[in-house]
């Protein structure tokens, strides 16, 4: 298992140019071990930079990124080991596929780890199963796959490294509703089966409300809230002020309350609302 802690992490893009932008400003967080943590925030709030820092791909200007209490940048030569432990799936990962076959592309990470052929093969098959990629597709070229299949193949490429922490930046961006649901279902299943820590960056309040155990809310390069979805969504004014939406169900809940039907606190998923409404209607 792995405990990820960020202490006082700051990072700027375009340093010493007129275009300098501060993307992280003194971020302190501890990611819950073995849980799914969602990172939300409006565009440009620093979400992607934050996961880049967690994944050891962005070296903070100030502060430290710690894994199990050890500074990951202390020994720069060992940064690759950190990258294998924290698997980062970037936005639109399908654009990074390059091998002749999907099988070889998924094997790229494990091969860089210097594993044996048998071990690699085992991991490729396992990773493909997690993302529900049929074995027949493994022999195909990335160009023959649909967008959703490519996305899943790219995610499998990171899962195959068996990272202690899986980080996904907007894993469902640009997919249709069925594709979104499939990706999130795969991620939830992956966490359930392996018990490993998962971090998801998302724009969609519905998705994080449904799948995450904890939420990190970012605004203006800072973490402004870090709590359970229940607590986060119980404060709608705060979210709206920081440019975020409420999940549709939370909005419905507020609307119903105004109309005199109180579903109670902590209702922000379709499932939760459905059960509650059925319960209320059966009482009548």
């Amino acid at each position: 298992m792995a405990r990820i802690t960020l202490s006082g992490v700051s990072y700027s893009y375009g340093k010493k140019t007129p275009y300098e932008i501060k993307a992280l400003d003194g971020v302190n967080i501890e990611i819950a071990d073995g849980k799914i943590t969602g990172i939300i925030g409006h565009t440009g709030s620093g979400k992607s930079t934050l996961v880049g820092a967690i994944g050891g791909l962005i070296e903070p200007d100030e502060g430290q990124v710690l894994i199990d209490g050890a500074d990951v940048w202390k020994n720069r030569k060992k940064i690759r080991e950190h990258r294998f432990r924290v698997g980062l799936v970037m936005q639109y990962p399908e654009y990074q596929l390059f091998e002749e076959t999907i099988r070889r592309d998924i094997a790229f990470g494990p091969r860089n780890m210097g594993l044996s052929d048998e071990e690699i093969e085992e991991r490729v098959v396992e990773a493909a199963r997690f993302v529900e990629l049929p074995e027949a597709l493994l022999e195909k070229s990335p160009f023959e796959l649909s967008g959703g299949e490519k996305r899943r193949a790219a995610i499998a490429g990171v899962i195959a490294m068996r990272p202690d922490v899986l980080v996904l930046d907007e894993p469902a961006a640009g997919l249709d509703p069925r594709g979104r649901a499939a990706i999130f279902r795969n991620i939830a299943e992956y966490r359930r089966a392996t018990g490993k820590t998962v971090i998801i960056v998302s724009h969609s309040m519905e998705d994080v409300a449904t799948y995450c155990d904890e939420l990190v809310v970012m605004s203006g390069a800072k973490v402004i809230m870090h709590d359970t979805p229940n607590k986060v969504f119980s404060n709608p004014e705060f979210l709206v002020k920081n440019g975020l939406d409420l999940p549709q169900i939370a909005r419905l809940n507020m609307y119903l309350r105004e109309k005199g039907i109180d579903l109670g606190e902590g209702i922000y998923t379709v499932e939760g609302a459905f059960n509650k409404i059925m319960e209320l209607s059966s009482k009548k």
């Binding site: 994944g55 791909l57 970037m90 990074q96 790229f108 860089n112 990171v158």
Partner: peptide, 16 residues
């Protein structure tokens, strides 16, 4: 920009 992104993505998979 694209090169930067792809390099980062491959680094995340251990490319050196």
């Amino acid at each position: 920009d694209e090169t930067d992104k792809i390099m980062t993505a491959q680094k995340a998979r251990g490319a050196d």
